[in-house]
């Protein structure tokens, strides 16, 4: 059980604490409380399903941002073998908000790239909270082109609030870095699988998410802007964040319905952080299935389908 509780799961935690208390009490005093404990346990099971089975979009945002939610580095460790990290964009520096390298996936060499947040304040500062500067996006592109050269499939993990908005980022062409990625990824001659694992924020997310198969973890979110900013900009009311989450349609189920993603990867009850190993196992299975399907397809048809996938997104009328 996670140490950091989310508000909406507190009733469950209280109930579970009570069960433990009863258990301790019965063993200490030698009293038989089996029936009482059983009743409470049944109630806890119901409550668990009630809470986690009906997560609101806002609750999913909380889970997606949970500080203990597994990130790119965790999945690399749990899903891939022999990962070797590569550094730098060859122009300016090594942006640690993006992690990338070569690894084996069921024996097959692949290039893995993803946003990396920190596990604590110090690491978060070093990784800029997973928000890439232009050099992070350029490192990602360099590694993708390297993958193309050697015929390695590319797997990306998206987990960012967005590309970094700062003076240095503008001076070094954040917009130019992002558009270069979008353009180049659309013709990359190897299969590309993108997984939104936590937060998929704006152009920073899309900059490594132009792929053939777009997956999203059940509680991940993907949006054009943060719900906080959305509420501020459109309603001039940052307090309406939860309304913004609903209106923006940013959950995996919403995006599947809108045709923006291809697959929802189920999470362990209560979110990926409740059982990271189980999450990695489920995700690994989905990746394996998606990759083996893509490997059977000729690259020309993969590229045509990739083009059509993004070409077809939009809603308009001939008025």
């Amino acid at each position: 059980m996670s140490s950091l509780l989310m508000d909406f799961e507190k009733p469950l935690a209280e109930l579970e604490a009570k069960i433990n208390e009863l258990k301790n009490f019965s063993s200490e005093k030698g009293l038989d409380l089996t029936e009482e404990i059983k009743t409470l346990q049944t109630r806890a099971e119901h409550l668990k399903k009630e809470i986690y089975g009906n997560l609101s979009p806002w609750q999913r945002v909380i889970i997606a941002r949970h500080p203990e939610r597994p990130g790119t580095i965790d999945y690399i460790k749990m899903i891939f073998a022999d990962f070797m990290e590569m550094h730098g964009d060859r122009y300016f520096g090594d942006d640690r908000s993006v992690v990338g390298g070569i690894a084996r996936f069921h024996g097959q060499p692949v290039t893995v790239i993803g946003h990396a947040k920190g596990k604590d304040t110090k690491e978060n500062l070093a990784r800029n909270f997973g928000m890439a500067h232009p050099e992070g996006n350029r490192k990602a592109l360099r590694l993708m082109e390297q993958a193309e050269k050697f015929g390695r499939p590319v797997i990306t993990f998206v987990d960012t609030k967005g590309a970094y908005c700062g003076i240095g980022a503008e001076e070094r062409g954040q917009a130019w870095a992002i558009s270069a990625n979008l353009t180049r990824m659309s013709t990359l001659r190897v299969p590309v699988i993108a997984v939104i694992i936590g937060e998929g924020g704006s152009g920073g997310a899309l900059a490594i998410a132009v792929g053939d198969h777009i997956m999203m973890l059940e509680n991940a979110i993907y949006s054009v802007i943060s719900p906080e900013s959305f509420a501020s900009i459109l309603w001039k009311d940052p307090g309406r964040t939860q309304d913004a989450v609903e209106a923006m349609k940013m959950t995996a189920a919403d995006l599947k319905e809108l045709g923006v993603i291809d697959e929802i990867v189920p999470e362990p009850l209560g979110g990926a952080h409740k059982n990271p190993e189980e999450m990695a196992r489920i995700l690994g299975k989905s990746l394996e299935k998606a990759l083996s399907a893509l490997k059977k397809e000729p690259i020309e048809s993969i590229l045509e389908n990739r083009y059509k996938k993004f070409r077809g997104i939009g809603q308009f009328v001939s008025g």
Binding site: I178, S179, S186, L258, V260, Q315
Partner: peptide, 12 residues
């Protein structure tokens, strides 16, 4: 929302 974000990938 997200549909506007996807126009970036579409045009590129």
């Amino acid at each position: 929302g997200i549909i506007s974000l996807m126009q970036m990938a579409k045009t590129c």
